[in-house]
Amino acid sequence: MSRRRNDPGGVIPIAADGLGKSEWIRASLEEFARASGPGTLVPSERVLAEQFSVARMTVRAALDSLEASALIYRIPGRGAFVQHPLVTQSEVLRSFTEDMVLRGMIPGTSEIRAEARPADAFIAERLAIAEGAQVYLIERVRTADDVPMAIERTNLPAERFPGLLDRLQERDSLYAALASDYGVIVDSAEQTAAIAHLDHADARKLSTTPGASCFALARTSRDRMGTVVEFGRSLYRGDRYVIQMRVSKDALTLPADGEAGLHV
């Protein structure tokens, strides 16, 4: 008989092979997590401490390590659960639709809100347009394989994209609509990411818990001529995403005074 999703069953210890107790428990739990379906309940600290004949503190350290590796997640008062596979937010500039298709997932939109309104000073500055000029505000809840993954909120100059709101209803990808209907290719973007916590309204849209952690991304996109196309802020579920970044040091240089210096 197959194990129910929320029935933790038992954790089968792997061969110790000289591992310390904490490493042995972690390796056994890692094997359990990889063999179990997403959302499977992990046995409690008490149960694991009894099974492995160790202190609960040792079990807690192993669980902390698995949580840091995104193999499990914890919900206060409910326990630890096997993590869903995480989606990497790539450093390559793609639309949500393109990104999900490349991952073999089916992109979609479960909710959409769009309206034309005057740009306030902040949005006007970001879009390099006059304050009070009409902009389109587009908010969409994006899904992958019917699971809510992100809330995208973006602003575009209405004068440049007349009729966009009607055309977007016929397309799932904003970038595809801009390319095919207006000949505008999004070529580059400046993006920042921060950790935020979902309020009740956004948590409901993403089918998760109020206060849950999320990635708050702010993006200014430009076309091939360097003209701003959009400015948006998006929320990505922290339990389903990781952020990928490429970092490097500048070359070691030798200043005129002869002392080595590193420009960062």
Rank of each mutant, 00 (worst) to 15 (best):
82 V>T: 08
86 L>G: 00
86 L>T: 08
87 V>H: 12
89 Q>S: 09
90 S>P: 04
94 R>F: 01
94 R>C: 01
96 F>Y: 14
97 T>E: 13
99 D>E: 14
99 D>T: 02
99 D>N: 04
100 M>P: 06
102 L>Q: 12
102 L>N: 14
103 R>Q: 14
105 M>I: 04
106 I>T: 14
109 T>Q: 11
110 S>C: 10
111 E>I: 10
111 E>S: 12
112 I>S: 14
113 R>I: 11
115 E>C: 08
116 A>C: 10
118 P>D: 08
119 A>Y: 06
123 I>H: 05
123 I>A: 07
125 E>V: 08
126 R>P: 08
126 R>G: 04
129 I>N: 08
135 V>I: 15
136 Y>T: 09
136 Y>P: 07
136 Y>G: 07
137 L>H: 13
138 I>N: 03
139 E>N: 11
140 R>D: 06
143 T>G: 11
144 A>T: 10
145 D>H: 10
147 V>W: 02
148 P>E: 13
148 P>C: 13
151 I>T: 10
152 E>T: 02
153 R>G: 04
153 R>N: 07
156 L>C: 04
157 P>R: 05
158 A>F: 07
167 R>H: 06
168 L>E: 03
170 E>I: 00
171 R>D: 14
171 R>H: 14
172 D>E: 13
173 S>M: 03
173 S>N: 07
173 S>G: 08
177 A>E: 05
177 A>P: 01
178 L>Y: 00
179 A>S: 09
180 S>K: 03
185 I>R: 05
187 D>E: 14
187 D>C: 04
188 S>Q: 01
189 A>H: 06
190 E>A: 12
192 T>E: 13
193 A>I: 11
193 A>R: 03
194 A>Q: 15
194 A>G: 12
195 I>F: 11
195 I>S: 14
